Simulated assay, not measured.
Amino acid sequence: MAQKREFTAAVPAQARSEVGRIAERMRALGARWPASDGVAVFNRVYLTVTEEIDRRIEAGDFPDRRAATALDVLFAGRYLSAVAAVDAGRRPPACWRPLFQYRHHPGVRTVQFALAGINAHIGHDLALAVVDTCRALECEPADLENEFDRVGDILTLLEERIREDLMPGPDLLEIADPLTHLVGAWSLDRAREGAWSAARLLWRVRGLDDVAEEFTERLDTTVGLVGRCLLTPWRR
């Protein structure tokens, strides 16, 4: 693995408090939507993640504070851009469309909304955010690997909490429930691994506009198809 180097790119000093500002924007969004709204469900989950990352950045838990902040802000920005697109009557990226289309469906359960949002954000947005961060800080993906892994560790802990809080208690009915098998088939670890591989590939082909655009479009579409599967209605 390439040796981590010190960043010298100019990043505004106020960016250090930007994660907290992102959390404030998420709280404002949550206040606009009813609790049952599928996008609101994901927003609550993501707000918890963002608050935890902000706390750990401020506590000095990340090896490179500036890199962690830049990655988190650019990552969250892609979700907020999808929300803004829908608010403006535009189509969001394909990975986000299922969640916005099914957000009020009575047959979709809360845990499905949460995982569909995480799937879109990790499967598509995270890879692009890594590339965005590399451009902003003039570094290589390998320079961000520690920050990427630490954010991933936080997400893993929160994913476990999501499954515990949003899934019904373990019993024979749950074991027989098709939703249990659907949710169990999706893996955050695999999604993270895929995002890291996609980010490295996109960085390698960044000078080949047609190739990078085609790969990004296919990634967006594929993640969107997974999201539609995760949002399969189970009752009317």
Rank of each mutant, 00 (worst) to 15 (best):
F148V: 01
A191C: 06
G184K: 04
R5L: 14
R91I: 08
F100K: 06
A82W: 06
E160M: 08
P168I: 03
I154V: 05
R109W: 08
D220E: 12
R163I: 07
G123P: 12
E18C: 13
Q3E: 15
A31T: 14
A31F: 06
P92T: 02
R16K: 14
D171N: 01
F7R: 11
E164G: 04
L225G: 14
A94Q: 02
S197M: 07
F148A: 00
R5E: 12
N146A: 15
R65P: 00
L128A: 12
L137R: 07
K4A: 15
L231I: 05
F215N: 09
T180M: 11
A67D: 08
P63M: 02
E213K: 04
E147H: 03
V151L: 10
R163H: 00
Q14C: 13
P106R: 06
V226A: 15
V41F: 05
H181R: 13
V45S: 00
E140C: 06
M26N: 10
A127I: 05
V223G: 01
R91T: 10
R25G: 10
P92A: 11
R190A: 11
R200N: 10
D149V: 13
R32I: 02
G227E: 07
P93C: 12
A88S: 05
F215Y: 15
S81G: 09
E214D: 13
T48C: 09
R16D: 14
R204Q: 12
A68K: 02
D189L: 13
S36D: 11
E52A: 08
L188S: 00
A120G: 03
D54S: 14
D143N: 10
D54T: 04
E58I: 04
H105A: 13
A84L: 02
M1S: 09
G38R: 03
W186L: 10
L115H: 01
T48V: 09
R218P: 03
F75R: 01
R5M: 14
S81M: 01
L157T: 01
K4T: 15
L115M: 14
L230H: 03
Y102E: 15
W203G: 00
R206V: 04
Q101R: 15
R190V: 02
H104V: 12
A23P: 08
D220Y: 02
